[in-house]
Design a binder for these strands. Structure first.
Lengths: 224, 224
DNA sequence: AATGCTTATAATGGAGACAATTAATTTAGC
DNA sequence: GCTAAATTAATTGTCTCCATTATAAGCATT
C-alpha cells in the first residue's frame, strides 16, 4: 500500500463531491468560496480549483463573477443521462465480453459478493456506489476502451445521486442484486446478446423508477 | 451584438486551446505556468485554472507537482475517439431528423454555404472547424439532447487537431464537402437510415485516413 | 565505477491582500 | 409614491509572495 500525497485541491474535490452526492449539499444550493474555504481550513484558491473540476464532472455549475451552485437535473435531463449511459455501457459490454479472461471474471465474482454483502450494512449507499462502479468497470475491462470507460465513469458520478435515491427509496436494492447476478452469469456464458439486453434493461429500468419518483416529488412541491 | 466581458482565465483557455489545436503548442510539450503567465501578461493563477479546464477537455494532462503537458493521442486512442463520435453523432442525428423544422434546415443550408466558401480562403482550418461544428450542431438540434450535444462538442475539441491535419494534408477537403452536401439532402428528405449511414461513413472514413497518416508519421520518426 | 545519500535548484501548490464585478440599498428627482 | 441614478456591501477574480514538492547535481562510500 503506497502512501498517496494529496494536494489540498484534491481533498476539497473529494469532500465536496461526496457532500453533493449524499445530499449534504442540496441541488441548487450556492457554493460560496469563502465559506467553504473556512469550513475546510484552506484558502479560496484550492476551493476555486476544486469547483472548476467539479464543474467538469457536471456536479457544479460555475458562472463568472456570480459563483458556483450545485447542479440540479430535471426529469428530462435525468432521462437523457440514463439513455446515454445505456447506449455507452451496452456498447462497452458487448465489446468486452469476448475478451474477458477467467481472472477478470473471477475478480468480478468477488466484487459482486462484496457488493451484495454491503447492502445490509450501515451507510450502505456510500460503499455500495463505489463497489458498484468497480464491478461495472471490471466487466467492461475487456473492451480496451479507456476513454469510453472514463466517460462512463464521469457520467456515473452525475447519475450517482439519483441511483442512491433509488436505492434508499424503492425496491431498487433487491432488483439490482438479482440483475447483477444474472448479468455475471450471462458474461460467463459469453452470451453477448442477452447480456447487453439485460444491461440496457438494468439501466433503463432504474431510469423509469427514478423518473417516477422525481415526478412525484415535483408534484408535492408544487402543491405546497 | 453585446460585448462580452471575459475573465483572464477564459482568455487564457481560448488562447491555449487554439495554440494546441493549430499546432503552435506541440503534443507532449510541457506547459510551464510561469512561462505562459509571462507570455500572456497574467499571473500564474489564471494560467493554472485554464490548464485545469483544458484538462477536462482532454487537451492537457495535469500531474500534481509535476506540471502540465499537451496531450498526445496514439493511434488506438484516435481510433477509440472517432468510434465514440460515430456512435454518438449517429444517434443524435437519427433522433434529430424527424424533428428538424424548415427553419433549421434553412439555417443548416446557409452554414453549409459559408463552410464551403471558407475552404479557399487563408487560415481556412481555423474558421472551418468552427463552422463545421456549427453545421453539425444545427443538424443535431432536433434531437433535443443538450447533454449529449455538449459531450460531442467536447470530444470534437479533441478530435479537431487531427481533423485539421487531415484537411491540410490529404484530400479530406473535397470529400468532406461532397459528403456534407449529400448529408443535408438526406436530412431534407427525412431519410433517416441513409443519413445515419452516411454520417458514420463520414466519421469513420476520416478516421481511417487519419490513422494511416499517423502510422506513416510514426514510421518516419522511428527511422530517423 | 556504481550506488546511495545529501544538498541545491526549479517548478508547482497555496495563503493573504487587493482589484473588479455584481447585487442590494439608499438617495435624488419627478 | 414611484422610477432611476448613485452608493454601499458582498462576492468573485487576480496578483504577489512564501511553502512545499520533485528533479538534478554533487558528494561520500563501497
Amino acid at each position: 500500500m503506497t502512501i498517496v500525497y494529496k494536494t489540498r485541491t484534491q481533498l476539497v474535490v473529494e469532500t465536496l463531491r461526496e457532500k453533493i452526492l449524499n445530499g449534504a449539499i442540496k441541488a441548487g444550493q450556492p457554493l460560496r468560496q469563502a465559506a467553504l474555504a473556512e469550513e475546510l481550513n484552506v484558502s479560496r484558491i484550492p476551493v476555486r480549483e476544486a469547483l472548476l473540476q467539479l464543474e467538469a464532472e457536471g456536479l457544479v455549475s460555475f458562472e463568472p463573477h456570480k459563483g458556483a451552485t450545485a447542479t440540479e437535473l430535471n426529469v428530462s435531463q435525468v432521462d437523457e443521462l440514463f439513455e446515454l449511459r445505456a447506449m455507452l455501457e451496452a456498447d462497452l459490454l458487448s465489446a468486452s465480453i469476448p475478451n474477458l479472461s477467467e481472472a477478470k471474471l473471477e475478480e468480478a465474482t468477488e466484487l459482486l459478493d462484496r457488493l451484495n454483502q454491503s447492502l445490509g450494512k450501515e451507510n450502505a449507499a456510500n460503499t455500495w456506489s463505489e463497489l458498484n462502479s468497480n464491478y461495472h468497470n471490471c466487466l467492461y475491462s475487456g473492451a480496451n476502451r479507456p476513454q469510453t470507460q472514463d466517460l462512463v465513469n464521469t457520467l456515473n458520478k452525475n447519475a450517482d445521486r439519483y441511483i442512491r435515491m433509488h436505492l434508499l427509496w424503492a425496491g431498487g436494492i433487491s432488483k439490482a442484486e438479482s440483475e447483477h447476478n444474472e448479468l455475471l452469469a450471462l458474461c460467463k456464458q459469453k452470451d453477448v446478446a442477452n447480456a447487453v439486453a439485460l444491461m440496457k434493461q438494468h439501466i433503463l429500468g432504474s431510469r423509469d423508477e427514478i423518473k417516477e419518483f422525481l415526478i412525484e416529488r415535483e408534484k408535492s412541491i408544487e402543491l405546497k
